[in-house]
Computed example of a mutant assay.
Amino acid sequence: MNQKPMFELRRMDPDYRVLVTGFEPFGGNQTNISQEVARAMDGLRTVRCPWTEQPLLIEVETDVLSVDADGAQRTAQRIQRGEDWDAILHMGLCESCEDPRVERLAHDWLNMRLPDNHGRRIEKKTLDGLGHRGCWLDLSIWDDSRFPSKLMVSCDAGAYLCNETYHATLKSLCASDHDTPTPPPALFLHLPHEDRFDASRSTAFADACLGYMVRPYPVNVTHVVAMCLPQTGPSVFLTQRGEKETDAALWEFPGGKCEGKETFGEALEREIQEELSLKVSARHPLGTWFRLRGSDAFAIHLILAAGSTDEFTPMLSVHQAASWDDAMSPSARSWAGRDGEMFEFLSEALRPMS
């Protein structure tokens, strides 16, 4: 008797696991584009590496969040319970947007223009009082041509549920156990209404984001931490590199390379103690900048820090000078690497809310 050959069907193992979230409708809307796109992305899907065009198999888990306090905290609470992914992409509706907008910062601020779906309305309140939180991805190296519309990068995620959700997720990721300099990345993507930008284009935009999130750099990088230590004003502490150092006599945010399995906080506190004999407490990232220097590649993470400035006496070893500069005003200093861009960014990252 002839028998048909038997083949074992094996499910391909994904290269990465990511969480993609959207929101349910709110504010009188019958639909929410973020919910539609999230549901469309659920399961295995292939995206392209932005640097090599290599196909990457991604297992997408989706979650539609309620528009209330529980929804805003849901992902953060899952992280606190030990769930983890290689990346987290939050999505929400931006009623005023013409094109998708990638959010670089989550503000430490809640000022709800209308009640959420459970009637909660909070006005002019900080979320934790520890300052705005930034993502640890360099969005400046993302290529416009990989997206179905112009890549819009924003430093204003609003003051409603989208911002509250983003802030809570970034905070929980930083507090989670990880043996890498930074935790897995998280971003917030604001999507226009489907009348302006249809769901298929929004899905393609989200796919392009995922490619950059799981493969953030074109080459392997050395992770570097840089300290943003503000005082009233706000002014920030800067140092000038020594004449015999690389980038001699140029100004920078002090810090150094992460070693072994150090987290960003552990590395920053050690480096500042070693180089300046100062004790500071690392809080959280404000942003990340990719830098090529010769054959070396670096991911430089600007970390917000806290420390007493009343008896502030740095002991200079590898630096020749130190100074406080007003972060809200332009600077004419000569900068090492991309530290000038980092300084300019502080006008957003340290901006007080009102």
Score class of each variant (00 low, 15 high):
Phe205Val: 08
Asp207Pro: 00
Asp207Ser: 10
Ala208Gly: 08
Cys209Thr: 04
Cys209Met: 15
Cys209Ile: 15
Gly211Gln: 13
Gly211Thr: 13
Met213Cys: 13
Val214Trp: 12
Arg215Leu: 07
Arg215Asp: 07
Arg215Lys: 15
Arg215Phe: 09
Pro216Asn: 13
Tyr217Leu: 11
Pro218Thr: 10
Pro218Asn: 11
Val219Ala: 12
Val219Arg: 14
Asn220Pro: 08
Asn220Val: 09
Val221Tyr: 09
Val221Ala: 11
Thr222Lys: 12
His223Thr: 11
Val224Gly: 00
Val225Phe: 05
Ala226Gln: 14
Ala226Tyr: 05
Met227Thr: 04
Cys228Trp: 02
Cys228Asn: 10
Gln231Cys: 12
Gln231Asn: 14
Thr232Met: 03
Thr232Pro: 01
Thr232Ser: 12
Pro234Leu: 09
Pro234Asn: 13
Pro234Ala: 11
Pro234Ser: 13
Ser235Asp: 14
Ser235Arg: 15
Val236Leu: 08
Val236Ser: 05
Val236Lys: 05
Phe237Ser: 08
Thr239Gln: 10
Thr239Pro: 04
Arg241Tyr: 09
Arg241Val: 03
Arg241Asn: 15
Arg241Met: 13
Arg241Leu: 15
Gly242Phe: 08
Gly242Ile: 07
Gly242Arg: 09
Glu243Pro: 03
Glu243Trp: 06
Lys244Gln: 14
Lys244Trp: 08
Lys244Cys: 04
Thr246Gln: 14
Asp247Lys: 02
Ala248Lys: 10
Ala248Asn: 09
Ala248Trp: 02
Ala249Trp: 07
Leu250Arg: 12
Leu250Pro: 00
Leu250Trp: 02
Leu250Thr: 08
Glu252Pro: 02
Glu252Ala: 13
Phe253Met: 07
Phe253Trp: 09
Phe253Arg: 03
Phe253Cys: 03
Pro254Gln: 06
Pro254Thr: 06
Pro254His: 05
Gly255Glu: 06
Gly255Gln: 06
Gly256Leu: 07
Gly256Phe: 01
Gly256His: 05
Lys257Phe: 07
Glu259His: 12
Gly260Ala: 14
Gly260Phe: 04
Gly260Ser: 11
Lys261Ala: 12
Lys261Ser: 12
Glu262Tyr: 01
Glu262Val: 02
Glu262Gln: 14
Glu262Phe: 01
Thr263Lys: 07
Phe264Ser: 05
Phe264Arg: 03
Phe264Ala: 09
Gly265Tyr: 05
Glu266Gly: 01
Glu266Asp: 01
Glu266Tyr: 01
Ala267Leu: 00
Ala267Asp: 00
Ala267Trp: 01
Leu268Lys: 01
Glu269His: 03
Glu269Phe: 00
Arg270Met: 05
Arg270Gln: 03
Arg270Tyr: 04
Ile272Trp: 02
Ile272Gln: 01
Gln273Ser: 11
Glu274Lys: 09
Glu275Trp: 03
Glu275Val: 04
Leu276Ala: 05
Leu276Asp: 06
Leu278Thr: 03
Lys279Val: 07
Lys279Ala: 07
Lys279Pro: 00
Val280Ile: 15
Val280Asp: 00
Ser281Gln: 14
Ser281Thr: 15
Ala282Tyr: 00
Ala282Leu: 02
Arg283Asp: 07
Arg283Lys: 13
His284Asn: 06
Pro285Ala: 09
Leu286Trp: 03
Gly287Trp: 01
Thr288Trp: 01
Thr288Cys: 15
Phe290Gly: 04
Phe290Met: 06
Arg291Gly: 04
Arg291Tyr: 12
Arg291Ala: 13
Leu292Val: 14
Arg293Ser: 15
Gly294Lys: 11
Asp296Trp: 07
Asp296Arg: 14
Asp296Thr: 09
Ala297Pro: 02
Ala297Tyr: 11
Ala299Leu: 12
Ala299Tyr: 04
Ile300Cys: 11
Ile300Met: 10
Leu302His: 05
